[in-house]
């Protein structure tokens, strides 16, 4: 089990790195899908089946397909030929990355030495638990999120309709 965990965790990080470092957008998208899969596997190892499956259905199955769709329609193949970043830009982005990484590290250290969760994840990730949490404790964020999506939807319809007179 531990071996599996390290293997999948490495896979997650490597695929995530590929997403950022690859210059071909389609490859990045495929790598991102692989990344989602490894994350889902991590959930599986935690026995949170529901969350794992949701990860795949929503992120890998729906959102990434749309991403790919858009990438293909836009034909971003020429991205690979773009000039490389300048030295200053490189330094700046490296600086930001280090800052954010350190920030996350301090936050987790601050929160407590033990990184392992005390709660049994399979009970947290259970479908009933998720449903209950959504409709009781997190009702407001849930509704706000749905409103946000509605706004985005209306915006899209407006943008798409405007051209056709």
């Amino acid at each position: 089990m531990t071996f599996l965990f390290y293997f999948v965790a490495c896979l997650t990080i490597i695929s995530a790195l590929f997403v950022v470092l690859n210059r071909n957008p389609v490859y990045s998208a495929v790598m991102l899908v692989l990344c989602f899969f490894s994350i889902a596997t991590l959930y599986l190892l935690l026995e949170a089946y529901f969350v794992a499956v949701l990860e795949i259905i929503i992120y890998a199955g729906a959102i990434m397909v749309l991403f790919l769709f858009v990438i293909m329609l836009l034909d971003l193949g020429r991205e690979a030929a773009l000039p490389k970043l300048k030295k200053l830009d490189k330094a700046l982005s490296l600086f930001l990355v280090v800052i954010i990484f350190l920030g996350i590290l301090t936050l987790t250290m601050w929160a407590g030495g033990d990184l392992h969760q005390t709660l049994n994840p399979s009970s947290v990730g259970d479908i009933k638990a998720v449903g209950k949490a959504l409709f009781t404790d997190f009702l407001l964020p849930f509704e706000v999120a749905s409103l946000l999506l509605l706004v985005a939807l209306i915006g899209t319809v407006y943008l798409a309709k405007r051209r056709v007179k």
């Binding site: 259905i57 890998a60 293909m72």
Partner: peptide
């Protein structure tokens, strides 16, 4: 699997990649 149906839905949604990427 206790989320059997979702498992099936997840896999069918993954199958799209084969088609899309083959096309691309």
């Amino acid at each position: 699997v206790n989320v059997g149906i979702l498992y099936i839905l997840a896999l069918t949604s993954i199958g799209v990649y084969g088609l899309v990427l083959a096309g691309w």
